[in-house]
Write a protein that binds this DNA or RNA. Structure first.
Lengths: 152, 152
DNA sequence: CTGAATGCGGACCTATCCAGTCGGATATTC
DNA sequence: GAATATCCGACTGGATAGGTCCGCATTCAG
């Protein structure tokens, strides 16, 4: 279906939340989870993962919690998704190092790899800061086809 | 992981194969499946689905099979994926009609919807014909015109 | 007319993986 | 030392993708 996992969603939401509260020294996983109604333990693991990847700084103990490791402008959505979901490929055949086994098949793979790069590029161009300041208008809701229903 | 299902891959491969064999009146699901080492019965169902969606024409009986319903240039990868995997949303929260329940949460959703549009746009710009002639050239989509712009 | 080749489509099985939970350890502060 | 945190591995339940099976309908060749 070409969609993000909930974990990635949660991770983005959490980072956005942290970016929106720069005054706080640190916010606990529970704080963020409560703010969004996310299962706290699940979010905790996600934040731990993001910490391991260097996107967050953590501090245990009372009044501990998480804070962004860098400026919100310096963290891209791409990094977050990559940290949580691992490397992604739009083609299902490219798994890790070795190419498609049913070999002559994936002539498909090559053009789609370009699509993949495009997607990655777009995600890299979006920073947590961009998510935090969401005063954008839905703009031109897809006029071409009503296929991509993004009406909220 | 943000990847296509194998079914969608198979579908694209099959359409590409049909586009590469315009001389054939019709090719059976088995023909295509054998050419790529795809499970025949599975591919059959995929092709049936594409037929229902109007991307293919089918003909039963001996020497029957499938053929493209339109010119290969007039069929986009987007249509194929949509026909097989159904509408896709990059955000996991938007399921069908109703919006995210944990509501104030998904301020995330709005910027990602734009990413979604971008992806859809790229996929719409790729035709089956593009896949068939895989002469590594079609860099047209990446030539920074609108598609990847995504003004934030 | 009969049989083979094909499309059509529902039911089903299975493996994988996501989402979420549990339990316990370690660190820090008061 | 108690309370609040992060940290981390293991487990479970459910959804979904991938694939199979079987029976029926359609077409065509002999």
């Amino acid at each position: 279906m070409l969609k993000l996992t909930k974990k990635a969603d949660y991770g983005l939401m959490a980072l956005k939340y942290l970016a929106e509260h720069p005054e706080a020294v640190a916010l606990s996983a529970k704080d963020v989870a409560d703010a969004y109604g996310i299962p706290a333990q699940l979010l905790a693991k996600i934040l731990q993962q993001l910490t391991k990847k260097g996107l967050l700084r953590s501090h245990a103990g009372m009044n501990g919690g998480y804070a962004l490791a860098r400026d919100a402008r310096e963290i891209s959505a791409f990094e977050v998704i990559l940290a949580i979901d691992g490397p992604f490929f739009i083609t299902s055949c490219t798994k890790g190092t070795k190419a498609c086994e049913l070999t002559p098949s994936c002539t498909i793979k090559e053009p789609l790899a370009r699509v993949n790069e495009t997607i990655a590029g777009v995600l890299k161009s979006i920073s947590i800061q961009d998510l935090a300041e969401h005063e954008h208008q839905p703009a031109k809701a897809s006029e071409g086809h009503g296929l991509v229903a993004l009406t909220l």
